[in-house]
Design a protein around this nucleic acid. Sequence first.
DNA 1: ACAATAAATGAACGAACATTCATTTATATT
DNA 2: AATATAAATGAATGTTCGTTCATTTATTGT
Lengths: 196, 196
Amino acid sequence: MRYRDEHKELLVKEKAIEMIVREGLDGFSMQKLAKEAGVSPATLYIYYKDKEDLLIQLGYEEATRLIKAILKNFDPSMRFEEGMRIQWRNRADYWLESPVKASFLEQLKHSPLRGQVFEALDMEFLETMGAFMHNAIANKEILPMTREVFWSVAYAPLYTLIHFHTDGISLAGNPFRFSEEIMWETFAVVMKALKA
Amino acid sequence: MRYRDEHKELLVKEKAIEMIVREGLDGFSMQKLAKEAGVSPATLYIYYKDKEDLLIQLGYEEATRLIKAILKNFDPSMRFEEGMRIQWRNRADYWLESPVKASFLEQLKHSPLRGQVFEALDMEFLETMGAFMHNAIANKEILPMTREVFWSVAYAPLYTLIHFHTDGISLAGNPFRFSEEIMWETFAVVMKALKA
DNA sequence: ACAATAAATGAACGAACATTCATTTATATT
DNA sequence: AATATAAATGAATGTTCGTTCATTTATTGT
């Protein structure tokens, strides 16, 4: 039998992500993708059940890579500060090294496909993070707080800076390293506030 | 001559925003909007030049309301802490009171229309904020920093919490008031970090 | 009552859309 | 070399899209 052309398959994925980032999810169409990847429209339906399936599969695949990148060198049993700093840098690295793929994931996260792409993956990821937080609490490194407050303090400023960066706004100095320090010192503030 | 039915015009705007928030910018179409608003498709082209014009006008209008809401009771000559806290609460109030419209603006901000909708308005708004920061610096209430770092510290955690809230995630306790205090105390951290 | 005028309409246009299908092409096994 | 099999295709399907236009409707000033 004839084997699937993996180069072609990869090209389709690449062009799809490119087009979505360039023209938005509404500017994306199967016929345009086929033309851009130099493939028949019908071929896309060999790889994917339909348009939605294509988007979900691509999103799931890239989201998996993101989570893997975030958890690189990370272990839930780490000391809190070390774990936080590693994740912080992993996140910054991923976004700065793969801005197009990051923007693709961002678009999916703000679309109706959000649930189908991220729900299962996020559950697993949040369990790991939950274990990490639980350890930190047990070790009295942090006081109990909700995941949401934790997130808003730990990573929101970073992502905001990254978005400025992605939008082509020049960030003088080294705001990322700077922001990491702010993140860490802010936790001290939160600890104090939660005690009061 | 016959006058324009203002009730109909308002209904069109309302349904358009509803549909965009519900189905995303790619799920939005002129024919569906016409049907949902009980209007002929041709009528939409009396109100708006074309689909893009409709989105830009609606976006511009709502963005104007948002900026007005943010600047309510605010004056650039205020003391820094007072000004910050007023803006902080204004932002929280707008999002919590008008989640649908806020989500609509969010979608436009992540779309190719971004520039045409927000550029001119943001320029004006950023001038006001620039004056506020300049005053605070002149009064030695804050040290100089870029707009981006300022934003990431001042409002990023708030918006993150708001997004959790909009997604229907319950926020135990009163994380918004809590987050305001964190914001303010974090500025103390930033001041210290910038001095070092 | 009538003329003037702009709002509002339903039907229609070609273009682009997602998807399908009969056919052809390439390869692994016999 | 012949066969089997799945990949790959180009053309075509029906649907929905944005937009237009000839016509009708409602309201003002005469």
